[in-house]
Simulated scan of single mutants.
Amino acid sequence: MTEQEPQPDRRAARRSAARVAASRWRRWLVLTRRPTMWSLLVPIVAVLAGILFSTSGQASRGTDLRSDAPGLADVIRERQRLMADRVGEVAAVRADVDRLTAAAAPGSERIAKLSGAADALAAGAGTAAVEGDTLTVALDDSPLTSDQLPEWATVDDIVVHQQDVQAVVNALWRGGAEAMMLMDQRVISTSAVRCVGNTLILQGRVYSPPFVISVIGDPAALEAALDADPTIDRYREYVSALGLGYAVERTGIKTFPAFAGTLSLTSARVAD
């Protein structure tokens, strides 16, 4: 009977195999672990930045992306300057026409009669300067901001609108105004009052509030016409509630210049 060789320790072998398997499992977890949110965002941001730089370079082609065109305010100021120049030129041409007309027929009785009739109508038509006792009305936006408004009000309620200016103009004409100035321009019965947002456009020129209307006439009659107008009465309610500007003042003797716009009436309709 021969002597048997010693058998290896099965428990030790199993423990060694378990350690090897555990080591391989940890290595696989490290290689295949789930990526974090930051590790996903970094490459995405890098790709987007590259696309942005590429697009910007192609669009600008080495030039400045900031526009060199003048802003809207600059355009408006330039147009107003041109309009003032044109008004001066028109006034000079009219003066030349009057002078040459008088020189062409100094002894014409017919010319003299027509000139006299024209002079009599000039004040009412607005083609001549006029002087007299004046009343001035000023309309202005409210100083409130949107976050200061009561619940029932909107931002439209704190600005002066076209209908507000028109209501004052119409009431003053009804009250017997002999001549009228809106801001720094003479206006006549055919002058159009237009507003865009809270800016006023009159004969090609743009104005911001406060809007000032001055008239020559009987101050008491003019004030009574303003007080009797229902649209102005409604406006005064917002003056009290929201702080819109409304001021009426007797401003003494003043001289208004002649109307500088065109007198050609291109269209009309019967009032309702």
Rank of each mutant, 00 (worst) to 15 (best):
P6R: 12
P6L: 12
Q7K: 07
R10N: 03
R11D: 14
A13E: 13
R14D: 07
R14N: 06
R15Y: 08
S16G: 09
A22H: 10
R24F: 08
R27M: 06
W28E: 03
L29D: 03
V30N: 07
T32W: 10
R33S: 11
M37Q: 13
L41H: 09
L41P: 00
V42T: 10
V42I: 10
L48I: 09
A49N: 04
G50F: 15
G50A: 15
L52R: 04
L52N: 06
F53P: 00
S54T: 10
S54E: 04
S56M: 08
S56K: 01
G57A: 13
Q58R: 14
S60E: 09
S60N: 11
T63L: 04
L65M: 07
S67D: 10
D68Y: 02
G71D: 13
D74L: 02
V75L: 13
V75Q: 12
R77N: 11
R77V: 09
E78Q: 13
Q80D: 14
A84S: 10
A84G: 08
R86P: 00
V87Y: 08
V90Q: 10
A91E: 11
A91P: 00
A91Q: 10
A92G: 06
A92I: 04
V93Y: 07
A95S: 11
L100T: 08
L100N: 05
T101M: 09
A104R: 10
